[in-house]
Design a protein around this nucleic acid. Structure first.
Length: 445
RNA sequence: GUGAGUGUAGCUCAAUGGCAGAGCACCGGACUGUGGCUCCGGUGGUUGCGGGUUCGACUCCCGUCACUCACCCCA
């Protein structure tokens, strides 16, 4: 096989898809409870959409996008994130005229050409929510409650921490950036090479540099919160007090800034210590100016996105077992396979999951497979049964067996499946023998 | 884009420079139609790829590719 998957792209196999289905189901459920409706948006957009929204000077736009000319000569880009498309769709479909307020969610793949590492792929998946038309701090807090409830629904509330910050409005940031530059310029010798560059291009990012020297240099820098105007400060106060009233545990992190240009006021991240270097599992914030930037009216908005791969990493591969059949059809002799397939169809239509061998393996091998499959029942079909149009229904948990006619098989199987197996029953000739073979070592450390 | 680590059977891993192995999985048999245990047997390899050193390379050297983690960046 000389063709393999591209770097940073993954195959999701049946040992993981149940976990993803569980995540998606939980998201749909919780989003629905908060009044969010699903939208399905294109993976490919005009390149200009991302340049304008994410920011020309960001790494994403500068060097990480999958951009190419389509045969019509248009520059198109595989979406690196979801918010830009969500806003475009809100505007293009005239929702700002008809409904004005809207709560949308989406899920699907995003593409960034980065060097892969733990929790970072070139095709990765996000579940995102965007909320248009509300400027009030209650909306910020409500969205955070939704996010928190989603993680709680997945049993993760103990393993993540919520950090919030406020970036203020554009005027606040302009003033703050000037003061921050003033503070850092005399200390730029202490900054890492990267941050010395950032001091010119984007001084805010010096705040969340990991280097100890840079952290020290910003230790007693003026705080962003101190630079907020009255309205922004009041907004942030109300968000925090409402989060407290709702009982959400959170910490204010004054160093948290955004990689994307469109955020203002409230920003937040959901972080975990179990994810390696890529420790953010969800992040978002308010972006009141973006709708206008993309050619619409000034519509306030906010949203977030969470990384599905990172969420799956937190939940672990053991969290959702693969489905197993209810019954395994074992056949032997002429006509038995065809009879088994007829029974299988009838059982499938009655809602019973079955498994069957298409090839003629030994009786013993089939029965062994039946056991390993996790099926509760084995349905045995030999030449005698075929001649009599019956099937031997063996309860693998109880060790009991009975013979029923084909016409009654589906209803009898359904009955047996409905009755829970008696805990102490079952034929186990070798007590103490492991029932599960080769326990997989528990996920990553 | 930069750095480090790792590449041997489907999986997990062995093998002082000297015959490429084990466990698990898979298939079969013991037990011609009744399962998890046991025993026996079997299938399965271009040791990532290409060069070099050597009588001889899985092992040492160079290159290359892939994966992993980290930097960077970000969800």
């Amino acid at each position: 096989m000389d063709i393999q998957r591209l770097k940073g792209f993954r195959d999701l196999l049946p040992d993981e898809t149940p976990l993803w289905q569980r995540i998606e189901a939980a998201a749909r459920e919780v989003f629905g409870r908060y009044g969010f409706e699903e939208v399905r948006l294109p993976l490919l957009e005009e390149t200009a959409l991302f340049c304008r929204s994410i920011g020309e000077a960001t790494d994403i736009v500068e060097k990480e996008m999958y951009t190419f000319l389509d045969t019509g000569g248009t520059s198109v880009t595989l979406r690196p994130e979801g918010t830009a498309s969500a806003v475009r769709s809100y505007l293009e479909n005239g929702l700002h005229h008809s409904e004005t307020k809207a709560r949308h969610y989406y899920l699907g793949p995003m593409f960034r050409r980065e060097r892969p590492q733990k929790g970072r792929l070139r095709q990765f998946h996000q579940i995102g929510a965007e909320c248009f038309g509300w400027a009030e701090p209650w909306a910020d807090a409500d969205v955070l409650c939704l996010l928190w409830d989603l993680f709680a629904a997945l049993g993760l509330s103990e393993r993540v921490r919520l950090e919030v910050n406020s970036l203020g409005c554009a005027d606040d940031r302009r003033g703050y950036v000037a003061r921050l530059r003033e503070h850092l310029t005399p200390r730029q010798e202490a900054l890492c090479e990267n941050c010395r560059r950032r001091l010119q291009s984007n001084p805010l990012r010096v705040l969340d540099c990991k280097s100890a020297h840079c952290r020290a240099a910003t230790q007693d820098a003026p705080s962003l919160e101190g630079s907020l105007c009255g309205d922004c400060a009041a907004h942030f106060d109300l968000v925090r007090s409402h989060l407290t009233a709702q009982g959400l545990p959170f910490a204010v992190n004054h160093r948290m800034v955004r990689g994307l240009d469109y955020y203002n006021r409230t920003t937040f991240e959901l972080l975990s210590g179990d994810l390696g270097a890529q420790n953010a599992v969800a992040a978002g914030g308010r972006y009141d100016g973006l709708v206008e930037t993309l050619g619409g009216p000034p519509v306030p908005a906010l949203g977030f996105a969470l990384g599905v791969e990172r969420l799956a990493l937190l939940l672990g591969t053991q969290a959702a077992p693969r489905a197993h059949p209810d019954a395994y059809l074992v056949h032997r002799g002429t006509g038995a396979l065809e009879a088994a397939l007829l029974l299988r169809r009838g059982l499938a239509r009655a809602g019973v999951r079955t498994e069957v061998d298409y090839e003629e393996r030994s009786f013993k091998a089939q029965l062994r497979s039946a056991n390993r499959s996790g099926a509760r029942l084995a349905l045995l079909l030999g030449e005698d049964e075929v001649a009599a149009e019956t099937v031997a229904v063996k309860d693998l948990a109880e060790g009991t067996q009975e013979t029923v006619g084909w016409d009654r098989a589906a209803s009898r199987v359904a009955e047996l499946l409905a009755s829970p197996p008696t805990p102490s029953a079952g034929r186990d000739p070798h007590p103490g023998a492991p029932h599960v073979q080769s326990e997989k070592s528990e996920g990553s450390t």
